[in-house]
């Protein structure tokens, strides 16, 4: 990761600029041992700075992905909920066909684990940041047939983090454009378990997909896809017209490589910000640089991490 320039840390100085230009600012500095170019002390300082940067970048990701991202997930849900309400009230919520990714399609409530999430269309890592996503090639949740909904297990609010704790018989309620369907959980299904028989007639099956880990720190290590099947005796008439298949990025553990260009842009901006901060550090008062640069760099770092998350497996 070349984003090793996060924060207002002075860039390592391969150029000889640091010594002369630092002279005017010197009086304001804390008394600190002076580092001379070429000395052993400079080498130690360089190594120290590099590792500090590494630590900052890694820990930032560890803090943002599982914890801070809850904020963006909650905000997305807070916006999606009224949008879905409006769509349901005005009967414009989708019933089938090709739906724009990110459109809210239904509200999923599982009282036993306190889950209430707006399900959106699409299952790319990008879409799943907002909430559980409906696999586009299946019928909508609540319709007859098999519907697949995927959700993140440990990042972005971990909406499906606890669905593996569901027991047979638990209720899952779906409110969608055609009405309300109550599903009963059949069981949690891990790799190697038998696939349930095909649904018949107007039966509807809702398969929730997320990831789980094992061993120590299991909640931080979503490794394998896990499934929860729930059935309802009667679903609504499917609207049809959904695509026959989806690309690999929308399948469980798929990654959305379309984020790469945006990521490159973000990193370039971060690099630019680091350069500007370095220059400003020697020109202006340090307090001023802190006040001005912190929000900009934080925003960029946040956005960069958000973009990086699109490149990671979608069920994380």
């Amino acid at each position: 990761m070349s984003a090793a320039t996060v924060g207002p840390t002075p860039a390592p100085s391969p150029t000889p600029t640091s010594a002369p230009t630092s002279a005017p600012a010197a009086p304001r500095r804390q008394p600190r041992p002076q580092v001379r170019a070429g000395s052993t002390a400079e080498a130690w300082s360089l190594v120290s700075t590099w590792f500090a940067l590494l630590a900052v970048v890694c820990l930032w990701l560890v803090v943002q992905l599982p914890f801070l991202s809850v904020l963006s997930h909650n905000r997305a849900q807070a916006l999606l909920y009224p949008q879905l309400r409006t769509d349901l009230a005005s009967a414009t919520a989708p019933t089938g066909g090709v739906i724009t990714p990110g459109t809210p399609v239904s509200l999923l409530t599982i009282p036993t684990i306190g889950l209430r999430q707006v399900v959106v269309e699409g299952t790319t890592g990008t879409v799943l940041r907002a909430g559980p996503g409906h696999l586009a090639s299946t019928v909508l949740p609540g319709q007859s047939g098999i519907s697949v909904v995927m959700g993140r297990a440990s990042t972005y609010g971990a909406p499906f983090g606890s669905i593996t704790k569901l027991h047979p018989g638990d209720e899952a309620v779906v409110q969608m454009s055609q009405g309300r369907v109550v599903y009963r959980v059949q069981d949690v299904r891990h790799a190697g378990d038998p696939v349930p028989a095909a649904v018949t007639g107007a039966q509807s099956r809702l398969t929730l997909v997320t990831a789980e880990g094992s061993g120590a720190l299991a909640w931080l290590r979503p490794t394998t896809a896990v499934y929860v099947d729930a059935v309802a005796t009667k679903g609504f008439q499917p609207g049809g017209g959904q695509p026959a298949s989806v690309d690999a990025g929308q399948l469980p553990m798929g990654t959305d490589s379309s984020a790469l260009p945006v990521l490159a842009l973000c990193l370039a901006l971060l690099l630019g910000a680091a350069y500007v901060v370095t220059v400003a550090w020697h020109r202006f008062s340090h307090a001023l640089v802190w006040v001005v640069a912190s929000p900009v760099v934080l925003t960029l770092a946040w956005f960069t991490t958000d973009t990086t998350a699109r490149l990671l497996p979608n069920l994380m």
């Binding site: 990701l61 990831a211 553990m253």
Partner: peptide, 26 residues
């Protein structure tokens, strides 16, 4: 018919790895 395993090494190792690297780096 058995449920096929879908695994992702990235998903499993990323966050613990970052945590470890961060701590070591610090």
């Amino acid at each position: 018919a058995r449920t096929a395993p879908t695994r992702s090494g990235t998903g499993g190792m990323l966050l613990p790895g970052l945590l470890f690297l961060g701590l070591v780096g610090g």
